[in-house]
């Protein structure tokens, strides 16, 4: 063997050793897994989330797991990483594990239907957490969802009151989500429900499609601010897009606190930690808060009731609430973003 080949050979042994350790570890792990299962009498609920990419979903998962722990119920969790096919695979895995119920955040309205049908066919009750699926004769699932449209309308109405207080005509921008997601559609509709009642105060000059991505939100808001520098009223369909929106506002020198003459009236939806921080610092006027703890509790109760053969309503609505500068101290303890933030 020539000396110059020595380093690669060493590296090769290292990689081979790593692979061996990995496989060995996996096999040991799987052996342990088997030993922990026999005789388990606890109910097991499968939780399938489409993504964990935002604070809301992370808080939702934690709330569901805490609720299950409180009731001494075991949970198995899978995250589909934004892929509907992977989510279908995970639901099939839950079926093969014989779970007692499934709580699911579907990828979107339609691609989740085969997964729901699969669980239904196996006699496993399904509850959809915070995001509905399309209705279908062969796919039955109970939905626990926020009243997105009404809560958005209430939030935007509050923002309009602030615009009326300030006086003058306001040029508005709405940042919408992925319109394949019914929550995004409902929030967009709720926004228009509110603003169309006040054409003398609000004129919508820009609708920015974010597809629930920070990059598209930032570029869209930046472009809209360049095209319409007079925009002074922005509603974001989700609080998680605020970092992008704030960055675009800062770049345009338009990010000022409430009370500043050039303050852009800002509103959002979700109630995350960023929104709470912006509320405390006086930059955010209001946000519609989804009561994630209420939704988690209702989802777990619904899946247990379905398993027990009880009648459960097809849709359980989380009324949520609007948090703003005037009720911040009072409502913050119920805001999930105030509990999970730094």
């Amino acid at each position: 063997m020539s000396p110059d080949l020595a380093p690669p050979i060493k590296m090769k042994y290292f990689v081979r050793l790593s692979l061996s350790v990995f496989i060995g570890g996996l096999l040991m792990f799987s052996g342990c897994s088997r030993e922990s299962k026999p005789g388990a009498q606890k109910a097991v609920i499968g939780i399938s989330f489409e993504t964990l990419e935002t604070e809301f979903w992370a808080a939702g998962l934690e709330a569901l797991q805490q609720e299950l722990r409180n009731r001494d119920i075991e949970s198995v969790v899978s995250i589909a990483d934004g892929d509907a096919s992977r989510q279908l695979q995970h639901i099939r895995v839950f079926v093969s594990r014989g779970v007692d119920g499934i709580i699911m955040v579907p990828k979107d309205l339609h691609t989740s239907l085969p997964a729901i049908k699969t669980a239904n066919a196996a006699g496993i009750p399904v509850v959809l957490f915070n995001r509905p699926a399309a209705t279908h004769d062969d796919a039955h699932a109970v939905k626990v969802v926020a009243d997105n449209r009404r809560l958005t309308q209430e939030t935007v109405s509050y923002l309009i009151e602030r615009a009326i207080d300030r006086g003058g005509k306001h040029l508005a921008m709405v940042v919408v989500g992925d319109l394949g997601d019914s929550n995004a559609v409902a929030r967009r509709d709720g926004f228009y429900d509110a603003v169309t009642k006040h054409p003398e105060v609000i004129s919508v000059v820009s609708e920015v499609p974010s597809e629930w991505t920070q990059e598209k939100a930032r570029s869209g808001v930046t472009n809209a601010l360049q095209a319409n520098p007079e925009i002074n009223f922005i509603f974001s369909s989700s609080d998680f897009l605020f970092p992008s929106i704030v960055a675009a506002l800062r770049a345009a020198d338009r990010y000022h606190p409430i009370g500043h003459p050039q303050h852009v009236i800002l509103g959002g939806f979700d109630g995350d930690a960023t929104a709470y921080k912006m509320l405390r610092e006086g930059y955010l006027d209001a946000t519609g808060v989804q009561d994630v703890y209420f939704e988690a509790s209702q989802a777990v109760q619904a899946v247990l009731d379905m398993k027990a053969g009880k009648q459960v309503a097809d849709e359980i609505l989380d009324p949520g609430f609007v948090i703003h500068q005037d009720n911040l101290a009072e409502m913050a303890p119920r805001m999930w973003g105030a509990q999970v933030g730094p």
Binding site: D83, A84, T111
Partner: peptide, 14 residues
């Protein structure tokens, strides 16, 4: 066929 849906963002993460 598997997802019973035409999806404009199909397979984005695979």
């Amino acid at each position: 066929a598997s997802l019973e849906t035409g999806d404009p963002v199909m397979g984005q993460n695979i």
